[in-house]
Simulated scan of single mutants.
Amino acid sequence: MSFKTLAAIAGASAILCGCATTPTTPPSTAVVAPYADSLAVSGRLNVRYIKNGNPESSTVKFDWKQDAQSTEVALFDPFGSKVANISVTPEGATLRQGGNKPPLTAPSIDALSARALGWALPVAGLRGWLQGHATAADGKPWSASPANSEVTTREGWHLQYTDWQPDSSPPRPKLIDAEHPGGGDVQQMALRIVISE
């Protein structure tokens, strides 16, 4: 057996022994920062759902801005072309699409986005979810941490925070999976939200 082969075996053994004896680090119990009315983030959103028995899916990039009174969401296709612009205020919701299409308005963004996009964008929930906050099924406020990363909301969404922004203290969400059983024409809705900031 050559010296190189022996060295390789010894190196592999050291690595394996090191792996076997290295203690695993428990997930951080640090909680996300308090909810803020103002937020600006970008990212990617994948939605999967079943509508009238047929599986559907869509992927968009988004720019999200909110303050205490309003939310502005710009949606782009994977190539960077703007698909829609959504504005939500206490007076109602407006959705503007590309081309010469007239803007659509409605009292509720959920109904408006379902009509225009085929799926309901849960804007009210996302204002908190993007920061790691939600209202739990029991009506109590909930805040995420790497050690406490799952909750079912009052509206029936199951949220799971599966990844976090690197070197962030307090922790900030990077990847959120959200699932809802749906209702009406849309069933088994699933969102995957990747926040790139």
Results as ranks from 00 to 15, higher is better:
residue 2 S to Y: 12
residue 73 V to W: 00
residue 150 E to W: 05
residue 7 A to P: 02
residue 1 M to E: 12
residue 99 G to N: 14
residue 33 A to H: 04
residue 82 K to W: 02
residue 130 L to G: 06
residue 41 V to D: 03
residue 20 A to Q: 13
residue 111 A to I: 05
residue 24 T to L: 10
residue 124 A to P: 01
residue 133 H to L: 07
residue 9 I to L: 12
residue 182 G to D: 09
residue 7 A to I: 07
residue 100 N to L: 15
residue 100 N to S: 15
residue 145 S to E: 08
residue 35 Y to R: 12
residue 60 V to A: 04
residue 129 W to A: 01
residue 83 V to F: 01
residue 51 K to W: 03
residue 91 E to T: 09
residue 100 N to W: 07
residue 55 P to R: 12
residue 134 A to E: 05
residue 40 A to M: 06
residue 40 A to G: 12
residue 193 I to A: 04
residue 195 I to M: 12
residue 4 K to V: 11
residue 19 C to R: 09
residue 151 V to W: 00
residue 25 T to N: 08
residue 163 D to H: 07
residue 84 A to W: 00
residue 149 S to N: 14
residue 20 A to I: 07
residue 128 G to T: 02
residue 160 Q to N: 14
residue 174 K to A: 15
residue 40 A to R: 14
residue 150 E to A: 13
residue 52 N to H: 06
residue 143 S to Q: 15
residue 80 G to S: 10
residue 3 F to E: 13
residue 169 S to I: 09
residue 42 S to F: 01
residue 64 W to A: 00
residue 39 L to T: 03
residue 106 A to V: 04
residue 108 S to T: 08
residue 139 G to H: 06
residue 3 F to Y: 08
residue 75 L to G: 00
residue 95 L to V: 15
residue 117 L to P: 00
residue 139 G to N: 03
residue 178 A to P: 01
residue 76 F to H: 00
residue 24 T to P: 08
residue 19 C to W: 12
residue 151 V to R: 05
residue 43 G to H: 08
residue 78 P to W: 03
residue 76 F to T: 00
residue 11 G to A: 05
residue 184 G to Q: 02
residue 177 D to P: 02
residue 144 A to E: 02
residue 88 V to K: 10
residue 163 D to W: 07
residue 191 L to W: 13
residue 130 L to A: 11
residue 114 A to D: 14
residue 171 P to T: 07
residue 148 N to I: 07
residue 194 V to K: 06
residue 8 A to R: 03
residue 25 T to Y: 02
residue 50 I to C: 03
residue 101 K to A: 15
residue 82 K to L: 05
residue 109 I to K: 01
residue 76 F to R: 00
residue 20 A to Y: 10
residue 178 A to L: 09
residue 137 A to W: 08
residue 41 V to H: 04
residue 190 A to G: 13
residue 194 V to L: 13
residue 84 A to N: 01
residue 11 G to R: 02
residue 39 L to K: 02
residue 18 G to V: 06
residue 58 S to Q: 11
residue 143 S to N: 11
residue 36 A to V: 11
residue 105 T to C: 05
